[in-house]
Amino acid sequence: MNQKNQVPTYTKKDFVSNQEVRWCPGCGNYSILNAIQTTLAKLGKRKEDICCISGIGCSSRSPYYINTFGMHTIHGRAIGIASGVKIQNPNLSVWITTGDGDALSIGGNHFIHAIRRNLN
């Protein structure tokens, strides 16, 4: 196996960025972020091949806190941007963090079309 394909062994710490997490004390987002970072370490994907996209809202801050490629975008549109990332480079593991308003209200249209298209 060539070196490029060998995925290093990661721990959760590899996916923690140097940014201060700014959620309210006690917020459920902390445990969600923790779970995502733990999962990414076990994903079997190289760190540089992971891309986290979010829209707007508290939870959508999460890409700043995850040490991969990522983009904090605009309200409701994470799905559109993530679709472009995935189509351009299907090798990437693309993650979307979104809140209820972001996904189902302002982004509702994109949400149903993303389900219909089923890109990955």
Binding site: I74, I79, G80, G84, Q88, N89, H110
Partner: peptide, 23 residues
């Protein structure tokens, strides 16, 4: 690669995503 999006907003957003990913 052409992507017919569900609306104008998703169309430009998908291009932003593709650009970020190197197109």
């Amino acid at each position: 690669k052409t992507f017919q999006a569900e609306d104008e907003i998703c169309a430009v957003c998908s291009s932003i995503g593709a650009s970020y990913a190197g197109a």
